[in-house]
Design a protein around this nucleic acid. Structure first.
Lengths: 239, 239
DNA sequence: CGGTAAGTTGACGTGCGTCAAGTCTCGTGG
DNA sequence: CCACGAGACTTGACGCACGTCAACTTACCG
């Protein structure tokens, strides 16, 4: 159930049996959402946080003119809104980018964890801090990288993050989203994303096709994107 | 000393005397940095977090070609890297944008807080979550807003945040940074920032001059930026 | 009073947006 | 089995917001 989440946490630090049980105990139910559905709407009051078991979820914000910006993409094993535990309402919405299975973690039980299990509390805090680090890296992409570098960087990031939970290998991974959604992540138009994907393909770096990312030259792709996975904090560190 | 930080926390929830004392007790020393100095370099191992007492600090990331992106601007009363407590090293650097006074909060003592004061721990967690919300809003600016809207949005955000700690009034506030640094926040070139500032001035919205932001028509500026302060989470909420 | 950094402006270039006309894919119903 | 409609994707022609380059002004400081 929450194995993929545990997998990620344990890459950073030990989680003992009591902690694991407490974490499992936060889950009150499991829900399935169809692709394209908004799971949580910005501003609504929350009593639970969303743990993604399977599928892809995006955090997004709408603009008045109908455009939107996806600010983060979550993969299986991620808490999509653990920050909602302290914020109580979200400044963004959550969108199912693919069909999704989610588990809902009760804020009441998360609160009990913060009262009784300080080490696990630090681990949860750590998780939200890594999310923020990802936001920062996306700011760099949006502010300073060219369209082709942004796309390349995103493909590299998702490769590492999906790899951690066993959903990617050295050749690629499944990414069943449309070019329009990719455009919303990258701060570009769908038309330009299409041109950029063609260039990445023609330069024999990556192919994005039929909901799949296939690497042709990963080292060159990483060089193009100036990708350095340090910001994902996947190295062991006792908390 | 840490009054401005307490001011912000207390806008959200009560902090009792024991909690206040514990927070004060984390501070081990105070340091002054000249404008332009890098306070913490990306990647270095940290034993303390940086609480900004006075001045402005930017979080930034460098790119290979010498460009850089500022991903967050901190005002007096902000912890600039409380997330460093769980991350142990930063994925970004910290820059003194103006002369700065900072207090350093020992990670050992912060850890003690997480062991003994769960409510204060949640408040600290909350602080880092608001930082992440600000990162998200900047992603929206960088990805989807025009140059003039980005500038307008930043001026509105800093107005609210400086207002909370008593450093802004309805007419404006001090912001002693260069146009080049503004450009690094906004993902633009200094030349274009200069043109945008001229347009904001000619349209009688804001003036940015001699290290000061002076509003001429704040409601119109907020409309232009589509500014909604909800993402700053400045409303009371028991944690 | 000279030097240096910050700000200003104009001419021109370009990466990405816009608009519009396709094509391809696939699910549905006749 | 084919017809058809709806999305998603693709491509070309053209436009514009912002970048680049370079010259100049202003402010400040020793």
């Amino acid at each position: 159930m929450i194995e993929r989440h545990l997998l990620k946490l344990r890459l950073r630090d030990k989680i003992d049996a009591a902690e694991e049980a407490a974490l499992r105990g936060t889950i009150v139910d499991t829900v399935v959402h169809a692709a394209g559905r908004t799971i949580v709407r910005a501003g609504e009051e929350l009593n639970y946080s969303t743990l993604l078991l399977d599928g892809l979820v995006g955090r997004y914000k709408d603009l008045k003119n109908g455009q939107r910006q996806i600010t983060h993409v979550h993969v299986a094993g991620d808490f999509a809104d653990l920050h909602g535990f302290t914020l109580k309402r979200l400044d963004h919405s959550l969108l199912a980018l693919t069909p999704c299975t989610i588990a809902r973690a009760s804020h009441t039980r998360l609160r009990e964890i913060t009262e009784t299990l300080p080490h696990l509390t630090r681990m949860m805090w750590y998780s939200t801090n890594v999310d923020a680090a990802i936001h920062r890296e996306w700011e760099v992409s949006l502010g300073r990288r060219s369209a082709i570098q942004r796309a390349a960087h995103l493909f590299c990031e998702l490769h590492v993050r999906l790899g951690v939970v066993g959903l990617a290998d050295e050749n690629g991974y499944g990414l069943a989203i449309s070019q329009a959604e990719l455009a919303e992540c990258l701060g570009l138009t769908p038309v330009h994303v299409n041109r950029v994907l063609r260039e990445l393909r023609e330069r024999s770096l990556v192919e994005f096709r039929n909901g799949r990312v296939s690497f042709q030259d990963l080292p060159a792709l990483r060089r193009l994107a100036e990708f350095d996975p340090g910001y994902l904090y996947l190295t062991p560190q006792p908390l």
